[in-house]
Design a protein around this nucleic acid. Sequence first.
DNA 1: ACTCCACAGGAATAACCGGGCG
DNA 2: CGCCCGGTTATTCCTGTGGAGT
Length: 400
Amino acid sequence: MSNHDPIDKLLDDAISGHSILKDRRVLQTSHEPETILHRDGELAKTTQSLLPILKKSRPSNLLIYGKPGTGKTLVVKKVLEKIEKRVEKSEFPIKFVYANAKDETTIYGLLVSFGSKIGVDLPTTGLSISTIFKKILDHIKQNSMNVVFAIDEIDYLVELASKTGRDILYNLTRANENLGKDSSLTLIGISNLLSFKERLDPRVISSLGEEEIVFTNYTVDQIKEILAERIKDAFVDNVIDASALNLCAAMAGQEHGDARRAIDLLRVAGELAEREGSNNVTSDHIRRAAQKMEEDKEVTALNAYPLHEKLLIVAVMRSNGASTGEVYHTYKELCKTIRQKEVTQRRATQILSDIELSGLITGKIVHQGIHGRTKKYNLTVQPETIKKAFQNDVILADVL
DNA sequence: ACTCCACAGGAATAACCGGGCG
DNA sequence: CGCCCGGTTATTCCTGTGGAGT
């Protein structure tokens, strides 16, 4: 699967003089390992569910749940790949299509990419969704294809789905009834959220959820083995301290057994160690990698806020531990210096409690007798982080 | 025991915004 | 293109509140 381009490899080596990293691609999220550890049950169930297709009958639609980093995508891709290989030589036409709903901004885009993968030429614009849909079904029918369509992060789809979008999802799950005897369409939905089902049209649930598989979390020991496996391919021998490996697995396990996070952590720690010219990756590197990732996450979150949210965060930073009134006062000053219209205090308190919900600031209600009731706000992140995040915001330049 | 502060936070309503549709 | 629709943002107005000060 992963094509190890010799040119890339040379370039990688050249960039990092004496490298402790043998092949950093192995640690990237796009990497698909040969064997998938500790997912035997899930692999078996998924295969089982798709088995009918080998006997030329239609499998049930399948819904897969599991927390992030539990190997859902990996397992589905692997199983589809294996079946496809097995069927390749036979004259029985099976087609697997994988799409990630996050990559497509609209249902329309999703359908078009789906269509192009099964060989329907579609214009990227101009046709209505229902026309596209019909063309795809016609194509499947005419060529008597058996198609399995895997939609990853299907929760996103439902999120952005308007009424027509929901209808499409419904039609997709029920498409079989309109296909002839010789063709079929099976859906595999993959979702991070267990609660995803609740927000679905009950008609869709009954047809999409014909069969369900829930992916369990990895244990710390399992993560350790998965990491060890990757380390073998990614790093030069014996550069990862045992304590570093343990810590890395433990940190990821603390969340909910997120293998992807563990691997990310390892990659960042490895890059950190390499940049420092260190000969091995220590638990200190892991710790700093975690810190860096946390900070990056905060910076991204900070930048995603609209202007007035940012201004209020700066106001909280300026006057740490201040009451709502004081924060609002400094906020108004900030608005004046950058010539922006301020929002009302009511709105400001609303925004502040929204930000509080995201965890960047904390607020505590205090009663001060004759001095009334108010909320005292504090920053939970380093002021440095905030400055770093906002420094390339041209509007905020003057108030930092 | 009573007052009164400095807001919290609910409700109603208006302004705005992006997407779909004829 | 304008129009409508649903969702979000913001304003206005409002009632409620624990305890320091008297």
